[in-house]
Design a protein around this nucleic acid. Structure first.
Length: 310
DNA sequence: AACAACTTCAACCGCCTGTAG
DNA sequence: CCTACAGGCGGTTGAAGTTGT
C-alpha cells in the first residue's frame, strides 16, 4: 500500500529551528493547545512538517523540560528502567517527566551504554546475559511492565493536567506544580521553554522588538532559580509518581501482583484496572517508605553488581 | 595554530498503532 | 472488516562542538 509521507517535502524547511519559528509555534500552541499537528504548519505558516512541529514542541518547547546534566538518581532510574523495559524510551521518559524520550535515548547511547560496557569489561558480567537467562528477572519483568504502564498513565495524566491550555495559557505563565512561578536561565537558545513563553508575552506586545532576541533576553537570570525551579518541579512529580520510592528497593514490587492478574491487563482501558494497579503501587510505595535510606536493592534482578560504579 | 578524531545531541526517517469513516 | 490518516515511537544521521596530536 505504502504510506504517504506526513507532508510533501516540497517547500518544507529542515534543520535547526530558529527563535522566530519557536515563537510562532509556542504562540499557536498557547492559543490552541497541543494536538492536531497536521494543521499546525498551515495555520501558523511555518514551513515545517507536522512531525517536526510536534517533535520541537514535545522535546524542547513544552514547559517543564529540564536540560543539562543528568543527576545520579536520574542515571540510576534510566539504567534500572532500561533493564526492565528495554529501549522503550517513551515509557522510561514517563518516569522522568522533565526529560524527553529523545534526551534519555541520547544519554543512554552516549553515556550509559559506555559506562555499562566498561563495567562489563571489568567484571565479565553481561547485562544482556542476565536479562535473558534469569527466570526470576523474566517473571519480575512481566509484572513490572504492567505496573509501569499503569504508572505511566498516571504520569501522563499529571503532565497533561499541568500542560492543559486551560491551566497553562490562561495563567499566561507556565506554573510549576507547586504553583510557584519562576523562569529559568537558558543555557543555550534551544534550552529554555519557560524563556520561550516569556519571550512570547513580549512578542505579542511588541513583535518587532522581540524578533531575533531569544538568545539574550534572559541573560543574567539567577541560575539558582533554575535549580530551585527544577527541584520544585521534581518534587511535584515525585509526589505524584513516587520517584523517591522508586529509587529504593525496586525488587520488591513484583511480589504485590500476580502474573495472572497482570497478564490480563488491558492497556487501552486503563481506568479501573489502572486504579487497581495504582492502589497496589501505593501499597508498595507505602512499604517503601520504611526502606528509605537503603541503597538500591536489586537482589531479584541480579543487578547490584552493575551499580557499583556509582 | 591547524588538522584529525571523537563526542554530543537536535532533528529526521520510516515503521507501528489507534481510530474514524 | 477495510482503508486512510494522524500521532507516536525508536533508530539513525550529520552538523556542531570538543579534545587530542
Amino acid at each position: 500500500m505504502g504510506r504517504q509521507p506526513c507532508c510533501d517535502n516540497v517547500g518544507v524547511k529542515k534543520g535547526p529551528w530558529t527563535p522566530e519559528e519557536d515563537i510562532i509555534l509556542v504562540s499557536y500552541i498557547q492559543q490552541q493547545g497541543p494536538g492536531n499537528w497536521r494543521a499546525v504548519p498551515t495555520k501558523t505558516g511555518l514551513l515545517r512538517c507536522s512531525k517536526s512541529c510536534r517533535l520541537r514542541w514535545t522535546n524542547y518547547l513544552r514547559p517543564g523540560i529540564k536540560r543539562g546534566n543528568f543527576t545520579e538518581n536520574e542515571e540510576k532510574m534510566i539504567i534500572h528502567l532500561q533493564a526492565l523495559l528495554g529501549n522503550r524510551w517513551a515509557a522510561i521518559a514517563s518516569y522522568l517527566p522533565q526529560r524527553t524520550d529523545n534526551d534519555i535515548k541520547n544519554y543512554w547511547n552516549t553515556h550509559l551504554k559506555k559506562k555499562l560496557k566498561k563495567l562489563q569489561g571489568n567484571e565479565g558480567c553481561s547485562r544482556d546475559g542476565f536479562s535473558s537467562s534469569s527466570s526470576t528477572y523474566q517473571i519480575s519483568r512481566g509484572q513490572w511492565e504492567r505496573k509501569l504502564q499503569a504508572d505511566i498513565h498516571m504520569a501522563k495524566k499529571a503532565l497533561s493536567d499541568a500542560l492543559s491550555p486551560e491551566k497553562s495559557s490562561r495563567s499566561a505563565e507556565f506554573v510549576p506544580f507547586n504553583g510557584t512561578t519562576s523562569y529559568v536561565k537558558p543555557s543555550g537558545y534551544a534550552s529554555s521553554t519557560e524563556n520561550i513563553a516569556k519571550l512570547l508575552k513580549g512578542w505579542m506586545r511588541n513583535p518587532l522588538k522581540m524578533a531575533g532576541s531569544a538568545d539574550s533576553s534572559e541573560e543574567g537570570t539567577d541560575s539558582m532559580m533554575e535549580d530551585k525551579n527544577s527541584k520544585e518541579m521534581t518534587e511535584g512529580f515525585q509526589s505524584v509518581l513516587g520517584f523517591e520510592s522508586l529509587d529504593y528497593s525496586i525488587c520488591n514490587i513484583s511480589q504485590s501482583m500476580s502474573p495472572e492478574a497482570s497478564l490480563s491487563q488491558d492497556e487501552s482501558k486503563p481506568t479501573l484496572r489502572a486504579q487497581t494497579q495504582l492502589s497496589l503501587l501505593e501499597e508498595w510505595l507505602f512499604d517503601e517508605g520504611v526502606n528509605q535510606g537503603k541503597d538500591y536493592q536489586l537482589c531479584d534482578l541480579g543487578l547490584e553488581e552493575n551499580f557499583n560504579f556509582f
